[in-house]
Simulated scan of single mutants.
Amino acid sequence: MQLIAHAQLPTENSLDGLLDKWIDSTGCLKTTSFQRRQAYAELRDFLGGNRSPTVVTPALAAQYVDERLRQSADSPSTRRRKLSALGAFWAWMATRRFVANGVNPWSGFRIRNSGNARVGAKKRPYTMTELLRLFSGSPTYPALREVMALGLFTGARINELCSLTHADVRWDRGVAIVQITRTKTTAGVRNLAVAHHIPVAILRSRTRRSAPASAQLFPELRGGGYDKKLSWHVGQAFRYHRNKVGLCGETDFHSLRRTFITRMENLGVDQVHLARYVGHALPTLAFTLYSGGSTETTQRATARAVTYPPRVEAAVSSFLRSQHP
C-alpha cells in the first residue's frame, strides 16, 4: 500500500496536527496526555511518519494490531489502553468530519490476557525459584542488571536507585551509607546501610569512577515518561526482560522490594528496624512524633542480616558478571 508522503500533507489536517488539537480540546490530565501521545507515536512509527487520517483503513488497523500491538512486550492492560486511545482519537476526528462518521478502524478488536496473567491479579513477592529465572538471560539495557540486584538486596524503590548521585554514597569501614532523598514519601528519606558483598561491589565500582558529587551514579540513564524520571526506561526494560524469561504479571520491579521485606521478616529482623530500613511509615505517635528515627548502628545491623539462599546469590553474581564478557 502506497502511503502519502509527509511533505504533501497540510500540517493542520495531518495526524500530527490533529493529535495536538484533540489533546488540547479534552483538557485531560498530564499522565493521560502522555499516554495518548505514546500510543500515537507507536502507530506513527508503524506508518513511517506523519500521515493523513484517511490512510488508516480497517485493514491497516488490523495489521497494526496483529503485528505490533499484540506482539509488544506491554502487559495486556497497557495494550488495551493504547488501543482505546487510538479509538478515542478516531472518534474525535469523526465528530469533526476529518474521517467518516460511524466507521472507526480501531473498534472490534479484543486484547486478551496472556495465559499466565490474571485480570486484577494482586502483586506479590518473587519466590526463590522465580528469582533464579529473573536473574538469568542477557538483558542489554544499560545499568538494568545492577539496579535489579540493588533492588533485591536493599529493598529500595526503582526511582530511589536510579536517581542516586555520587554525593549520595559514602563509605565507612567497608559499609556503604546510601542517602535516599528522591523518594515518594517523607518516611522514605533515610540513610541506607549496605553491607552485603554483592551490592557493595556494585556501589564500589560505580563510586570508583571519577565524577562530580552531583553526577548521576548511573550516568547512562536518561529521563523518560511525562515526568522525565530516570527510572522510566529502566522500568520498561525490566518488564520486557521479566516477560522474556516467562514470569507472570503478578510480579514487577516493586516485587523485588516485596521479596526483600518478606525475606527479612523470615530471617527474624525486628519489624521496626525493617520499616526504617525500607522507608515505611510507622503508625504510632511514639514513632512519628517522638522518635528521632533509626541510627546508623541499627541500619548496619539490619544490613548485615541481608542474605539469600546460596543458589540465588550465585545466580545474581553470574547475572552481573555476564554483562561484562
Rank of each mutant, 00 (worst) to 15 (best):
H6S: 12
L9Y: 07
T11C: 14
T11M: 15
E12Y: 09
N13H: 15
N13F: 15
L15S: 03
G17N: 01
I23P: 10
I23E: 05
D24K: 06
G27R: 01
C28R: 12
C28S: 11
T31R: 13
T32D: 00
T32F: 08
R36K: 07
R37P: 08
R37Q: 05
A39Q: 02
Y40W: 15
A41Q: 06
E42N: 12
R44D: 00
D45E: 10
L47A: 04
G48D: 00
T54I: 10
V55W: 07
T57S: 09
A59M: 10
L69W: 06
S72M: 07
S84C: 14
A85G: 03
A88V: 08
A91F: 12
W92M: 05
M93I: 08
R96Q: 08
F98V: 06
N101K: 15
G115K: 09
N116A: 06
R118P: 10
G120Q: 01
R124I: 00
T129R: 15
E130T: 03
L134G: 04
L134P: 07
S136K: 02
P139Y: 03
Y141P: 11
E146A: 08
A156M: 10
I158P: 06
E160Q: 03
T165K: 12
H166R: 11
A167I: 09
A167L: 08
D168P: 07
D168C: 13
V169W: 09
R170K: 09
D172A: 14
D172K: 05
D172P: 09
G174D: 00
V175Y: 03
V175F: 09
A176E: 01
I177T: 05
Q179A: 13
T181A: 13
T183Q: 00
T183G: 04
K184Y: 13
V194N: 04
A195V: 09
H196Y: 07
R208M: 14
S210N: 10
Q216H: 15
F218N: 01
E220I: 09
L221M: 05
R222T: 11
G223F: 10
G224M: 06
S231F: 14
S231E: 04
G235P: 11
A237N: 01
A237M: 07
Y240M: 15
Y240R: 12
G246A: 07
G249N: 01
E250Y: 13
E250V: 11
E250F: 13
L256V: 05
T259Y: 08
F260T: 01
G268D: 01
G268R: 00
Q271I: 14
G279L: 06
L282I: 13
F287G: 05
L289A: 12
L289N: 08
L289H: 10
T298R: 06
Q299M: 12
T302S: 06
V306E: 01
T307W: 15
Y308N: 02
Y308P: 08
P310S: 00
A315R: 00
V316S: 03
R321H: 10
S322I: 15
S322H: 15
H324T: 12
H324D: 02
